[in-house]
Design a protein around this nucleic acid. Structure first.
Lengths: 231, 231
DNA sequence: TGACAAAATAAGTATGTACATAATAGTTTT
DNA sequence: AAAACTATTATGTACATACTTATTTTGTCA
């Protein structure tokens, strides 16, 4: 009931001081306690606000060192990479899935290194195509650790999608992501039904459960695909 | 001193239940209060842990509805896009900058629409090349709102980098990012000293201060450029 | 039966207090 | 003067408590 300050109000007030130039890059802010006294709220409210600004990369906070406006600004964005089926269906299109290859093999050294495995490890390789309205949407080239996920061998991957099965049955605790552009080679061009040489966005993802590698996937997206974030 | 539970311990305990299958996608968790009682800590400690898991996209929380394991998992990653100079110098290379074009013009409709401006607005256009060890690293094609940032007209952009000037002098409150792949056209190929048709990663960014648009930039990166995140 | 109001619920927030921790500044010892 | 303690400081965390808010469930009335 009372006209208390919320941490979001405090956060926006501080942010506003940065936006209007009252606080510039590198400037030091007063102690949380003083800000709390000046604004008339509890220190924990200021702490919450500061934590949020710090998480967004706007402020830098150090014990004893105090709080300052980040001197080397970064654009910090949150990227949500959904399960492909959801991505397709949420955009109102029909999802389709098609298994291309399934085999047990020894992956190339780069894949083994990325997973932190020795040179003789044998993994399950899965190539599959995800469709949106019957058109190729994402081609995935995946290696799954049979050692970490033995159950995957019993799954009928022509009916069930490895991506979804893993995400529902083997949650990860660590994930490496890399995003880059690549020219479509003959193979990709054929599978995706596009001209050779087309520029495609590729999302590589490697996940672990604890220290054990689960899977590494290269997801080659159709032409025109965009990753979006909004802050 | 006492053996109190920290919110990180609580968070990891919950997360562990998800990792080991005790909690599956879609499952409902007990109320914070009950978890706190069971684990022997304050509800605020549980709240802090839950907030973190919710921010990471692992849990979904709704007032009255309770907490459940996210049914449609997403990979949520935080992307830090630094100022290019810092990115180059932090990797131990020499940073260079070169202004290619500076003019006042009316941008194409797509740019105007992205900025939410009418069809007659005149903006400052800046084309510039960022170098790493004297080799092209990022080509930027930028439009700056003269209305929002009139001071930009007085800056000598052949000496001072628009990217850095803006980021230090015009903090934004909202930012849209989009990442995609594009084939190098003749112009880009010449500027970047690469073959025509090379697949390049492009990062488009548009920023606002409140409702007023500041700038929109297309940053075309050199071949091999990767966006990385690690969770 | 359906529409609408009231109650119940669980997360979200605010506060004061106490203590923990990391980083710095100052002081003493070698 | 370098190294090794010590004190100080500002943020970080934990907790008990009280109140707020969004949402669902329930109850009432037409």
């Amino acid at each position: 009931m009372a006209n208390r300050l919320t941490w979001k109000i405090v956060r926006d007030a501080i942010h506003q001081q940065i936006l209007d130039g009252t606080l510039m890059a590198g400037d030091k802010l007063p102690r949380d306690e003083d800000i709390a006294r000046d604004m008339g709220c509890a220190r924990s409210t200021v702490q919450r606000a500061m934590q949020d600004l710090s998480d967004s990369g706007i402020l830098e906070r150090r014990r004893k060192g105090g709080t300052r406006v980040r001197a080397e600004p970064v654009t910090r964005a949150t990227l949500d990479i959904p399960v492909i089926r959801n991505e397709v269906e949420n955009s109102g299109r029909k999802y389709g899935y098609h298994l291309i290859r399934r085999e047990v093999a020894t992956p190339p050294p780069s894949v083994l290194a990325g997973l932190g495995l020795g040179s003789s490890a044998r993994l399950l390789r899965v190539e599959a195509l995800h469709l949106a309205d019957n058109r190729p949407f994402v081609f995935e080239d995946r290696w799954v650790s049979i050692d970490t996920v033995p159950e995957i061998m019993d799954i009928d991957l022509s009916r069930e999608n490895a991506n979804e099965w893993l995400v529902h049955n083997r949650p990860w605790s660590r994930c490496d992501l890399r995003v880059y552009a690549e020219k479509a080679d003959a193979r990709i061009a054929e599978v995706m039904e596009i001209p050779v040489g087309e520029a495609l966005l590729v999302i590589d993802r490697t996940t672990w459960a604890g220290l054990k590698p689960i899977t590494t996937v290269g997801a080659t997206t159709a032409p025109g695909y965009q990753l979006l974030t909004q802050i």
